[in-house]
Every structure is written in C-alpha cells, then in structure tokens.
Design a protein around this nucleic acid. Structure first.
Length: 695
DNA sequence: GAGCACTGC
C-alpha cells in the first residue's frame, strides 16, 4: 500500500481543467458598497466572492436576455443575486424576481437566509413556494424562491410567467428533467417576452453548450436586431467559490475491487493523515454495508489507530434517527468515517469532512424504451461529479481527495458531464406536461438535450392508450386535461378518474397517495423479521393496493398516532406525507368535479379502477412456472413479484403492477390481482392491437 | 428474498 498513491499535481483550485470559453471579467467591474443598512450582515454579504461581480452581473442582466453564471459552491450567487436584482429595481412596479432550485429543502433554506439578510419577515417581501407550502404574499412578495417543478405548474395558469421580470434557474448543471423542460420553455417565452431576463446558474457547467442553446433562438426570430432591447447573445460570467484547496490523489493502477480499495484507503488515511473526518462515495446499500462491516471489524480487532474510527453508513433508506448520527459532532480523538451514496454529493452537506474517497461509480437510472423498463445500474460518474465529490473535502480547511481510479482514466476516459436525466427516463410525465402547456409538436421541441425519439414515441403510445391523447396526439377533453391537472403519474391519475365512475374515489386517492411516496414501511436495519410480521397484520389477499387501504384505515383509527406507526413498523413521516398528498388530491378532484365516494368495502371495483390506470402493466404467471415467473402481456418481458410485496410467493395468475425495479431480475413492486376480462374492458383497442401484433 | 437521488396544483 505504501506506493499505492502518488500525489496529484498541486492545483490552485479544483475547478481548473477544461472550462474553455468562460469569460472571466476583470476586477475593474468591481462595485462599491450599496449603502444598505445593517452593518454586520452587509459586511458579511460583501465578503462573499460574488460581491465583486455585483456591478458586472447587473450590467450583463440589463444588456443580455440570458446571462449564464458559472460559480462554485460558496460563491454566494444564490442568496446574493436576487438581492442585487431587487436593489437595482428589477422588482419595481409589482414585478417579481424568481429563483428556482431542484430541491425543496434548498428552497426553504435559501429563502430564510435571504429574508434574514434583508431583515424582512419570510412570506412577505421574500417568500417561497414548494408543494404543499406557499409562503408568499401575492401583493408583497418581490423575491420568490421555488422548485423548478412548481414554476412549471405555474405555467399552466400563466404560460408566459408574466409576473416575473427575472427568472434565475439555479443548479442547472444537475440537468434534472424539470430543469431541462423549464429551460426549453423559458427559451420559448423569451421570444414572446423580450423584456424577460434569464439567469442560468450552475456549478461546473458546460457553459458553452448552454450558451449555444440560448443563442440559437436568434435564428428562429428572424429580424430582431433593433438597437433597443437586450442582446440575444448570452453572456457568460465566472465567479470563484470559497472552498479550500483540495489535493487530488489518484491510484497508479486501476483497482479491481473498489469496496476493498475503499477500506484500505480509509485505513491508510487514518494511519498517515492528521485529524479530520472521511467521506467515502460508493454506489448503494450493498457496497456500503459491506464496507461498514469490514471497517467495524478492523476497528474491533485492531489494537492500532483504527480503534478511533466511528464508522457510519449514509443512504436515503436509513431512518431519521440513523441519519441524525451523521450530523453529531465527532468526539475529540476520534475520526468519523461516513460511507455514503450520492446523497452526500448534492442533497446533504456534511461539515468537518477533510478527506474524500471517491470510488468513481454511482447507481444511475437508465430507461429502455423498447422494454419500457427503467434500470438502476452501477455506472462510472462524470468529471463534473468527481469534482463535486472532491469539493466536499474543502469546506472547512484544505483537504484531500483519493480517487480510486487513475489520472489517465480521469483525463482521457471519464466523460465531462453526466447524461441528462431526460435521456435516461420514461417520458410520460414530461410529454403530458408539455401537451398541457400547448406544445403540440413534442418531437420538434427545442430541448437543451433531446430525448430519444423511441422514448418519446413510447410515451405518446402510452398516453394514447390511456385515452389522454387523441389520434392527432392532442390532449383529449376532458380526460386528457384532467389527467394533466393532477400532479401524479398519468397512470395513477387515470386510475382516479376511473374510480369516479366505479364509485371508489375515496379509496383511489388513498392508493394514489401511497403509490406516490417511496415506501410507507419503516426501514431500519436488522428489523426485517418484525417488519414482515407487521406486514402480515395488514396483508390483503387482493394485493398491495388493498393492503395500503388497510394500513390507512388502521392509521386513522389510531388517531394518526406515531406510536401506532412505531408498533406496526410503519414510517410515521411517510404517513404524514400520505395525508398531505391525499388532501391535495381531494381538493383537486373536487375542483375537477369528481364526487368523492367510498365503495364501502367492495374491493372488486377498487381493483377495476387500478386496472383502468395500469392495464398496460398486466402480467400473467407463466404456465408451469415453478419459480414465480411472469410475463408482461405487452412486451413478453420476464418479471417476478418483488419480495416486499404481500403477493410474493402467492403468485396469482393475473396481476397488474405499479412499477418494476430492475436488479438481477425485473421485480414488480406494488402488485394487485385482476381478472383478465377487465383488461379488454378497460382498454379494448390496446389489447386488440396487442393480439394482432404480438411484440 | 431486496431498495442511487431528487421532485410536482
């Protein structure tokens, strides 16, 4: 192990490689103090790296329709730029400055921070909107933070987003589906509203390609070069961050087994490096549990330094209390080692990390439009992710990042950016959203990154079979518009609409709410057996959906008690979320004129309603199958009932599923028994067509 | 016999 590492080249900053084409403005643009009160906060604000670009930013926004700001974390761009814009008058005359984030937590955190800096009450001049929470005042709010998903929803009522003068899209480098749709739509809006200003902000963006995207609107616009109005040429500005230097180490030879290599590297750091916590990036729970186990054994068996290690796993499936351990301060003389998934790359920030070990891999979603199945596979990360991971070591002082791959691999083989989510996903949600916004030519939509035509066509097919789109691929009335209005997967929305006619809409919105969250079960480690036993208490012969109804009934009966949840291995926070979504759905369905009605225990109509939404996911048990193999009716794909389902090992002949998870096999999650005659009833042409053209 | 991470009127 001693010659295992070679020190990487000393680099002044992590983000120095190949950000070609980024304009770095000279300090001659630096502005002076703005003269706003509250000396302490004002001083703090002035110390942020973004401050010296204040005048430059305002100048660029004034003169360019789109400004692209490349800035590392800690530059202060998210909190400061909206304030600069407001100070410069962009919120005068009742106009609003918007700033979008991909995550709810970030929206709340940033909004509170800005309200505090401006000494205003949150929800007045500064507000935020996320699902279930609108902390804004229609008359008073001038700076509004929101998730990009909420802004997309706002476009359904106000397609040109007329109340906003400037829209800042933050974290654009993450390239989430919502961000990409939003960018495509904002570019369209810009042609109709030349006065609208866009700021695209991002950490390690391929600024050039984003700029190309916004520039190309010019050619569509024909003659527009009157002297008035902003330049359509996007401006690019780079702002440095405030992180500390992170020294990069590479392995000399490719590692065979990154699990083993992570363990050795952690022990090596612990042996040879001064105090400071370690963060290890692996791919998933399996890897993580393996490394935790190996390190824990090492700690217990060794009389050496490694006894000072506190080893903690981190992934989203952990319970709240297990996650809280991560944030407790490291005791003196000890060293914390956090073994994490990608969750620590963007969603969670750990303080006190000085060393990062990067396996070079993460689990990523890939969608196969032919089989219509999303796969979760271990894949190499991008350079942008590698930098992001390394940056986690430089938050409190200079740190080190140990990459479990060679420098040659990083330089020559690692791709610069990850594949945008929109090219790795099922597009049903995305297509219906665009249709609802009046975008008829989906295939011709101007995307920052185009999804594959196959995926697009598959989405159109599914929506057509649901009766959401007509022969001309236009939204049907009323079903199409109603499905688009309900903020759920279209198949779930269709189930709700069908339930209205079947007289079980109360049950349907409960099922819809449960299917919309990850899991309602308590996910602790080492409680598997108790969890299985608890599940049996609610299990229904019809399947998981009916089981959810039993749980919901029990929860209500207990007075929504957290102890009841605890006793039954149900996640109380998840149940609270179910109640919130259900309440939202209740309001929406009432607005759509759906009468809420319970089937009073008749589960046959409930199963019919599920079938009406999910007929495309119908499966039949293979005759003579001894291992529970099913085949999908639509594509003859081999699938199995997931072990978490109440129908696991029961293997009824006909089922529909909610989703498939794909590991070594394709597992159906959330399964319900059906009668095959309901399929032709629910979707006659879909199943007729299937018979004629078996796929 | 098994789960990357987010998110929505």
């Amino acid at each position: 192990m001693s010659q295992f590492w070679k020190p990487g080249t000393e680099k002044p900053r992590i983000l120095d490689d190949e950000e070609g084409g980024v304009l770095f403005l000279s300090s001659s643009f630096s502005s002076s103090a703005s003269g706003y009160g509250f000396a302490n906060i004002e001083k703090q604000r002035q110390r942020l790296p973004v401050y010296k670009y204040r005048t430059a930013i305002l100048y660029l926004v004034e003169t360019h329709a789109t400004t692209i700001i490349v800035g590392e974390t800690g530059s202060g761009k998210t909190t400061q730029i909206p304030q600069y814009l407001k100070e410069a008058g962009w919120a005068d005359g009742g106009r609003v400055i918007a700033c979008t984030q991909p995550r709810r937590l970030a929206v709340q955190a940033v909004a509170s921070r800005v309200a505090e800096e401006m000494s205003v009450k949150l929800g007045e001049e500064v507000g935020y909107t996320i699902r279930f929470e609108d902390i804004t005042d229609a008359d008073a709010t001038r700076i509004k933070f929101l998730t990009d998903g909420v802004l997309l929803r706002e476009m359904m009522d106000d397609p040109l987003l007329t109340k906003y003068s400037v829209i800042m899209v933050d974290e654009a480098h993450e390239r989430s589906i919502s961000t990409d749709i939003l960018l495509g739509l904002l570019k369209k809006i810009q042609r109709r509203r030349p006065e609208l200003r866009l700021i695209i902000s991002s950490a390690t963006i391929e600024a050039r390609s984003m700029s190309d995207f916004f520039r190309s609107s010019k050619k569509h616009q024909g003659l527009e070069s009157e002297d008035l109005g902003p330049s359509m040429e996007p401006a690019i500005l780079s702002v440095e961050g405030r992180g500390f230097n992170v020294q990069i180490h590479y392995v000399e030879e490719p590692v065979q087994d990154y699990v083993q290599a992570s363990v050795s590297t952690v022990l090596l750091i612990n042996d040879q490096e001064p105090a400071g916590d370690i963060l290890v990036f692996l791919t998933g729970q399996d890897d993580i549990d393996a490394v935790v186990k190996m390190l824990t054994e090492e700690t217990q068996n060794s009389r050496k330094n490694s006894s000072g290690l506190i080893v903690l796993p981190l992934y989203s499936g952990l319970s709240r209390s297990e996650q809280d351990l991560i944030f407790s301060p490291t005791p003196r003389g000890k060293r914390k080692v956090v073994i994490s998934t990608n969750i620590a790359e963007t969603s969670l920030t750990l303080e006190g990390i000085v060393y990062v070990v990067d396996s070079g891999f993460s689990k990523q979603r890939f969608y196969n439009p032919i089989s219509d199945i999303e796969n979760l596979v271990v894949a190499p990360i991008s350079k942008a992710s590698a930098r992001q991971r390394a940056g986690r070591a430089g938050r409190i002082r200079p740190g080190k990042c140990y990459r479990l791959y060679t420098e040659e691999y990083f330089m020559n083989e690692m791709s610069a950016e990850g594949i945008p989510e929109i090219q790795r996903s099922n597009l049903v949600d995305c297509v219906i959203q665009l249709k609802a916004l009046g975008i008829d030519n989906i295939l011709g939509f101007d995307w920052p990154a185009s999804p594959s035509p196959e995926a697009m066509i598959r989405a159109l097919e599914v929506l057509y079979s649901l009766g959401v789109l007509d022969n001309d691929a236009k939204l049907t009335s009323p079903v199409g518009f109603q499905v688009a209005e309900i903020p759920l997967e279209p198949m779930i929305s269709k189930m709700i609409l069908a339930s209205s006619e079947l007289g079980c809409s109360e049950e349907a919105i409960t099922i819809a709410a449960v299917l919309s969250i990850q899991s309602i079960w308590f996910s602790g480690r080492g409680v598997q057996k108790q969890l299985d036993e608890a599940k049996l208490r609610f299990a229904a012969a019809e399947g998981d959906h009916v089981t959810f109804l039993n749980i919901y009934k029990g929860f209500l009966h207990s007075g929504k008690s957290s102890q009841w949840c605890h006793k039954n291995f149900i996640n109380y926070h998840a149940m609270k979320k179910v109640m919130e979504i259900r309440e939202q759905l209740r309001r929406i369905t009432l607005r759509l004129g759906i009468v809420l009605k319970s089937s009073e225990g008749d589960m046959q109509v409930v199963r019919k309603a599920v079938t009406a939404g999910f007929f495309a996911n119908a499966c039949r048990l293979e005759p003579f199958s001894h291992n529970g193999m099913y085949k999908t009716i639509r594509g003859s794909q081999e699938v199995y009932i997931h072990p978490s389902s109440v129908l696991f090992r029961v293997n009824p002949k006909w089922v529909v599923y909610h989703s498939v998870v794909s590991t070594d096999r394709q597992y159906m999650r959330n399964v319900i028994t059906i009668d095959p005659s309901w399929l032709t009833e629910a979707a006659p042409h879909f199943y007729q067509q299937q018979r004629q053209n078996p796929m």
